[in-house]
């Protein structure tokens, strides 16, 4: 466990609470992609299956896994009940099946082992790397975003970006290297690069998030 990893995990945790706070404070889920949230729930459910047999291995990991699954399920529940009037299926239209299909194909082609758990784990890693696309697509269609939504996206993007120095650290200092997670993590971070740029040049300077 190193500083980058801890900061990455905390950033991930913070992003979920920013999202819940956004819905509470604006009493709306406008601008949030339900598709992306459902993809994340799929990611956590397929990756954290090991919670049943590694519960005692690390209390930190197990409790984070539970929090990610439950808070994302709660977010989806809120979006589909309390805040459903703000859902806009006309804007949230990214072809999610391609993402699930592509991740499934990569998982079957490149698992570490051909066991149900390892294939599902690989699936979750590839799916996570592209799960943000429906959300970014929605942002592009509307052309602007509430500031709190951009903080959510920044925290979520920062999480995987911080995992990259964590992987480098572990590679050099511990001889640990996880090629699937690293390649997928780099792709995931690259998908955010445009967003990071606009967040840095506009939101951090007090301006509204608007696409040029």
């Amino acid at each position: 466990m190193n500083l980058f990893r801890i900061l990455g995990d905390l950033s991930h945790l913070v992003s979920i609470f920013i999202l819940l706070q956004k819905m509470r404070s604006t009493r709306s889920c406008a601008g949030i992609s339900l598709r992306t949230q459902i993809l994340y729930l799929m990611v956590y459910c397929t990756r954290y299956l090991d919670i049943f047999w590694t519960f005692n291995a690390s209390l930190y990991n197990s409790s984070m896994k539970l929090v990610f699954i439950l808070s994302t399920a709660y977010t989806i529940y809120l979006m589909r009940t309390v805040y459903k009037t703000a859902l806009d299926p006309q804007i949230d239209t990214f072809a999610t099946y391609y993402l699930v299909g592509g991740a499934g194909l990569l998982a079957v082609l490149f698992p570490y082992k051909y066991t149900v758990y390892e294939v599902l784990w690989s699936f979750s890693i590839w799916l996570e790397s592209v799960a943000i696309l429906p959300q970014l697509f929605m942002l592009q269609r509307t052309g602007e975003a509430e500031t709190i939504t951009t903080h959510y996206l920044f925290a979520l993007g920062a999480y995987r970006a911080l995992y990259i120095p964590n992987w480098l650290y572990r590679w050099f200092l511990e001889g640990h290297f996880d090629p699937i997670a690293t390649v997928a993590g780099i792709i995931q971070t690259l998908l955010y690069s445009d967003f990071f740029y606009i967040y840095y040049t506009k939101v951090l300077k007090g301006k509204k998030f608007e696409l040029p």
Partner: peptide
């Protein structure tokens, strides 16, 4: 490359 039996990252 060492592949861990138990995944230790989230």
């Amino acid at each position: 490359i060492r592949i861990e039996e138990v995944k230790d990252e989230l």
